[in-house]
């Protein structure tokens, strides 16, 4: 196991590369999901305030 972790002596480089790479990908994914959610909520809330809402709904149906 320790032999595997050491990666032939290059463990630091290999594990940092993968670690930071994967962490960045996950962070970007989470941030994207978060802004998508909050933007959807905000749009919904703004629409509730708008009197055009009913008419638009009716048009959609």
């Amino acid at each position: 196991m320790s032999e595997f972790l050491s990666m032939g002596g290059y463990g630091l480089y290999v594990w940092t590369s993968w670690g930071v790479g994967v962490a960045l990908l996950i962070a970007l994914l989470i941030q994207s999901i978060a802004i998508a959610r909050s933007a959807a909520k905000e749009a919904e809330a703004t629409e509730l305030l708008s009197p055009r809402r009913r008419r638009r709904k009716a048009e959609a149906e």
Binding site: L29, L49, S50, R52
Partner: peptide, 29 residues
């Protein structure tokens, strides 16, 4: 992965644009 994240981000942009348009309409009214 690019496609997946892109969908979330475009979704966010579409909603933000809708919010902006609604706000502008409200301000006009």
């Amino acid at each position: 992965y690019y496609l997946t994240v892109l969908i979330f981000r475009v979704r966010a942009e579409v909603h933000q644009r809708r919010t902006r348009m609604l706000r502008m309409a409200q301000a006009d009214r």
